[in-house]
Each structure stands twice: as structure tokens, then as C-alpha cells.
């Protein structure tokens, strides 16, 4: 499984969606049930999947599918 597949799988499992809805519009502004529980669940799962640990500001900033890719790049994880 490549990084994009792993990344998508976490989003699909966290938000119970199909991968075809993931993209530039997938964010806490557009997803109704993206609350604090799912945000922390998402971050926890991403950290586990890529063996990283985010800084507090990165956790708070992880509010969209695209933003997550930028944050992971800081850890040399290319999606």
C-alpha cells in the first residue's frame, strides 16, 4: 500500500466515506460531522499510520484533506 492509499484509508475509515469524495473540498467546513472527536481520531490514526507525532499547532491546523498532506511533508512523508 503506497502513502496515498494509506492516507485515503485513514480518511475513509474516520469519516465513513468512499475515497472518491476525498479532494480539495474535503475539510471541516464542508464535512458536517467533522467535530473534535473525529479530528482527534483522524490525527491519532494518521500518526499511527505514518509513525509520526504532530506538534500541537499542526494538530489544530489539520482541518482538511489537502492541509494534512502539507503537514505530513514536514515529516518527509510525501502523499
Amino acid at each position: 500500500m503506497n502513502n496515498l492509499d494509506k492516507y485515503n484509508q485513514v480518511f475513509c475509515e474516520t469519516f465513513s466515506v468512499n475515497s472518491d469524495v476525498l479532494g480539495t473540498n474535503f475539510s471541516n467546513d464542508t464535512i458536517e460531522n467533522w467535530d473534535s472527536v473525529l479530528q482527534l481520531s483522524l490525527v491519532t490514526s494518521i500518526e499511527d499510520a505514518f509513525d509520526v507525532m504532530f506538534e500541537p499547532e499542526e494538530i489544530m491546523d489539520f482541518k482538511s484533506y489537502e492541509k494534512g498532506k502539507v503537514i505530513l511533508l514536514k515529516y518527509d512523508v510525501i502523499i
Binding site: T14, S16, N33, V37, L38, L40, S41, T44
Partner: peptide
């Protein structure tokens, strides 16, 4: 179940 299990794992 899905949300509760995610909550439980995180919290």
C-alpha cells in the same frame, strides 16, 4: 458503533 469505537480508541 463506528463513532463510539473511534472515540474510545482516541480518548
Amino acid at each position: 458503533k463506528d463513532l463510539v469505537d473511534k472515540f474510545s480508541e482516541m480518548a
